[in-house]
Design a protein around this nucleic acid. Structure first.
Length: 874
DNA sequence: TGAGCAGCG
DNA sequence: TTTAGCGCTGCTCAC
């Protein structure tokens, strides 16, 4: 028979944990729900992560247990269970019934004993057992087959106790936990132990003698007069305490392992209870499974001859395609809706219709799209130049809720409470089962999408107006979508031979490095496997691990760099990593992405980042190497697509610090930028209190790191890492910095306070980012939100600025009737290809347009270069 | 599928 | 007193 995976939960302990970990939530009906809610969250985590075959929740039975016969005061002095918690137990039991998880209690025994007995039975059969509790006593049950999960802070944070972990933490075996308790006692259970003996002393004694019995057998060897005295006087109490702490593993259970089989919940019942308790988020999580119901009827006109369509002045429009990548996806059909009538035209008829083409290219006919950039670029593949886009649902939803992840129209409209469109997953399936259904189904699906766009336009606009984001939407994001669509369609010419040539060199050097590394390691192994590499470095060679990850030793570059002087193999590994990355990601990766036209067409995601930046995918052209010369050569493969043309690149200099100077209104910083000083040198002068000539290169480097840190929402820890100095030193730098730029300090404090009050921060163009965690009681979450509050207005404003510059640039190129094409955006940089005779003009207008994209209290500065390839634009 | 690592601004 | 720089994408390994 297959091995079982048995999960045993300590019901009372976990309910207490959940109750105290969460604030006292009350639902509309006045029932307290925090313990049930926390318990449910935990349960769901366990079910999805562990996928148990067998489960049981054990409960304590009544007030007295067999332990009270040993010691009447057992668990004496405990606070009564708060009534707010007591009232939740019946709901918990009902919920577990709905989940169809067996529950069990046994008169005179505690939940521990039930769990201990079952885990023993499981162990004997070789099954895998997981015990979950909030009580560390249960760690005594850990064994080769049993792992004990103890909840840490909160409810979902769990510490896993294997025998090795117990050893690591306490230096003793799991079975010695009871000896430890015997000696030190346990205040929460009112187990006395030996007075004067705490955890430290108990562990010391156990490491020397092994057990309570042996401690007393060798009392004369115990050092310390007072300790010996205490032990002697409390011998009986020590043995009794050990007995009390011992979990019974032979309780007379009336239930067998086979009865614990878990086959999943009764969804209907679970849903009913969620509804009863008003667990909205949990309910929503269940909802996708029953998608497909409650759809309103829709009448779709399937069109073969587009000339029969009545093209209104305003219509919603959508193209249904078989893949997310609209640059090469198979286009299935186009849907149109005017709110009354909805049409679906299979794409073969779209392509061949002059009337439809004329409609799509008519700028006077307003069109509302689900994703306008996808429309521009996909229609452009068929020579159709889309005009008249006046609304974009994706961008509207994104501006209203940047943290959402939109995968299809259904996910966008959900934010507005609209449900009459199904998810793509429901229609097409997912993974291996993905397939296109019959045309009628596709037509309805596409029709519903167009209809949804039509119906939601008002709601989206209303929200934009309320949040004063109308301009951000109509002046920035919507026109940008068109520019980006053009850039994606244009693509960047990529020279395959250059890539291949670099690839050949890389492969040769990699195999050379490989032999050297194998030689030094004394054996071949997979250098790309952090696991194997860690074993070789830290076990075989015996280097000292500096950092650990969840799964083993960290072999990250910053760790290896610290070990470089310890062993010569390290530098070879670092080089191998670096070159391996170039080869797999850039040479092999980019080669695969070159289209038939000899170009690479990336897609810019316009509705993804939390800050308003763009991102680039399939492939990512925003992370082409530049920092190291070997990688930088990759850029030589990116060339103009026309003979005699050149690449032209322009980037904003220090845009984020300039934005910071403007937002914080720091006089010194503003002055520095106005006189075009080197900002890092200037910072160094202030932080180190020297004059310009006194700034060493090291000081400048430090100042640069501090400047970066400030932009990111600094912490002494982060700075200490990047500069390889102590936290204290880093803290000092930060203090000195903030003292010399007081307005920056003020800004950092104000923005955090503002975010706490409003729940969000904004950029100069009123882009929002919501930060619910900024009021969290969890230190990590809160700190992260605070740094985000400091960083987002800066990074986001910089993003706004370059977006505006792109729109202006596109317009200017047209006005000047230039052939120059904008190709790429890399956060603070724009890349163009241009005929040689236009270069002179570009040198004039590109900086002009970019520098005047927005008016700040400091000048914006643009630097530019051109050459025969991207590599040469330096 | 997620973790670890490394590439960019 | 264990936390711990901001924003991304893609490759490889191991499960």
């Amino acid at each position: 028979m297959a091995k079982k995976k048995i999960v045993l939960l300590d019901g009372n302990s976990l309910a207490y944990r959940a109750f105290f970990a969460l604030p006292l939530l009350t639902n509309d009906s006045g029932i307290h729900t925090n313990a049930v809610y926390g318990f449910t969250m935990m349960l769901q985590n366990i079910l999805s992560e562990e996928k148990p075959t067998h489960m049981l929740v054990a409960w304590d039975a009544g007030k007295t247990t067999f332990r009270h016969k040993t010691y009447g005061e057992y668990k004496g002095g405990r606070q009564k269970t708060p009534p707010e918690l007591s009232e939740q137990f019946p709901y918990l039991r009902k919920l577990l019934d709905a989940y169809q998880i067996p529950q069990y209690e046994l008169d005179q025994y505690e939940a521990d004993d039930i769990i201990g007995t079952l885990s023993k039975i499981g162990n004997e059969k070789g099954d895998e057992v997981i015990v979950i509790s909030g009580d560390k006593d249960l760690t005594q049950l850990s064994s080769n087959h049993t792992t004990v999960y103890i909840t840490r802070k909160g409810i979902t944070d769990i510490e896993k106790y294997t025998p090795a972990h117990v050893m690591e933490k306490y230096g003793i075996e799991p079975y010695q936990i009871i000896d430890m308790k015997g000696l030190m006692g346990d205040a929460s259970d009112n187990i006395p132990g030996v007075p004067g003996v705490g955890e430290k002393t108990a562990l010391k004694l156990l490491k020397e003698f092994g057990s309570v019995e042996n401690v007393y057998a060798s009392l004369d060897k115990v050092s310390g007069k007072k300790l010996k005295e205490n032990l002697t006087e409390n011998e009986e109490q020590a043995f009794m305490s050990k007995e009390l702490a011992t979990i019974e593993q032979n309780a007379p259970l009336t239930i067998s392992l086979d009865e614990l089989q878990y086959d999943g919940p009764n969804e209907e019942q679970v849903k009913a209870i969620y509804q009863d308790l008003k667990f909205k988020t949990l309910l929503e999580k269940m909802a996708p499974e029953e998608a497909g119901v409650l759809m309103e009827e829709i009448t779709i006109q399937l069109i073969e001859d587009p000339s029969t369509i009545e093209f209104k002045d305003e219509m919603a429009i959508h193209i249904e395609m078989a893949d997310v990548n609209y640059l090469d996806a198979d286009l299935m059909g186009l849907s149109l809706s005017d709110g009354e009538k909805t049409y679906y035209i299979p794409f073969e008829h779209v392509r061949n219709s002059d009337q439809l083409k004329a409609y799509l290219e008519d700028g006077k006919k307003k069109k509302y799209a689900s994703d306008s950039k996808a429309l521009y670029a996909s229609l452009f593949r068929y020579g159709i130049k889309l005009e008249g886009i006046d609304f974009d649902l994706l961008l509207g939803a994104y501006i209203g809720n940047p943290s959402a992840t939109y995968t299809d129209v259904a996910s966008m409209v959900k934010d507005f409470g609209y449900t009459n469109v199904q998810s793509d997953e429901v229609i097409y399936g997912k993974g291996a089962k993905k397939s296109v259904p019959d045309e009628q189904t596709v037509a309805e699906h596409a029709g519903r999408k167009a209809e949804a766009v039509w119906k939601l336009k008002d709601a989206v606009e209303k929200k934009l107006k309320e949040n004063e984001q109308f301009d951000l939407y109509y002046e920035l994001e919507l026109p940008l979508a068109k520019v980006l669509g053009q850039m994606e369609s244009t693509g960047v010419k990529t020279d395959l031979e250059t890539l291949q040539q670099i690839g050949v060199e890389l492969s040769a050097r990699l195999s050379e490095l490989e032999s050297i590394i194998y030689e030094m390691a004394g054996q071949p192994f997979n250098i790309n496997s952090p696991k194997q590499l860690g074993e070789i470095l830290f076990e075989k060679i015996g280097l000292t691990p500096i950092k650990k990850t969840k799964t083993g030793y960290s072999t990250a570059a910053d760790v290896l760099e610290k070990l470089e002087s310890e062993h010569e193999i390290i530098s070879y590994i670092l080089t191998y990593r670096q070159l391996g990355k170039l080869n797999s990601t850039y040479i092999e990766g980019l080669t695969k992405e070159i289209h038939e036209d000899g170009k690479i067409h990336t897609r810019f995601q316009q509705a993804l980042t939390q800050t308003g930046r763009l991102s680039s995918i399939n492939p990512n052209l925003q992370n082409i190497p530049i920092r190291l010369e070997e990688g930088r050569k990759i850029r030589a493969a990116f060339v103009p697509s026309e003979p005699g043309w050149l690449m032209f690149a322009a980037d904003y200099s220090q845009i984020e610090l300039r934005v910071l100077a403007h937002i914080s209104q720091d006089e010194k910083m503003i002055a520095a930028f106005r006189e075009d000083a080197d900002i890092h040198t200037k910072t160094a002068m202030d932080v180190f209190g020297v004059d310009k000539d006194g700034v060493s290169s090291d000081m400048r480097r430090t100042a640069k790191a501090v400047n970066f840190g400030i932009v990111y929402g600094i912490s002494d820890y982060g700075l200490s890492q990047s500069l390889n100095i102590t936290r204290k030193e880093a803290g000092k730098f930060i203090d000195t910095y903030l003292a010399s730029f007081p307005s920056v300090k003020q800004y950092m404090e104000d923005i955090v306070a503002d975010a706490k009050m409003k729940g969000y921060v904004t950029t100069m163009m009123n882009r929002r980012r919501y930060l619910p965690d900024i009021v969290s009681s969890n230190f990590n979450l809160r700190s992260f939100a605070e740094r985000t509050a400091m960083n987002t207005p800066i990074q986001g404003t910089a993003a706004d600025i370059i977006k505006k510059a792109m729109i202006d640039m596109d317009k200017r190129l047209k006005e000047e009737k230039l052939e120059t094409r904008m190709l790429l955006q890399v956060h603070d940089e724009l890349i163009f290809e241009a005929p040689e005779h236009e270069i002179e003009k570009l040198q004039e207008i590109v900086p002009e347009v970019m520098e005047s994209a927005i008016k700040l209290d400091v000048p914006l500065k643009v630097e530019w270069a051109f050459g025969k390839s991207w590599y040469e634009t330096k």
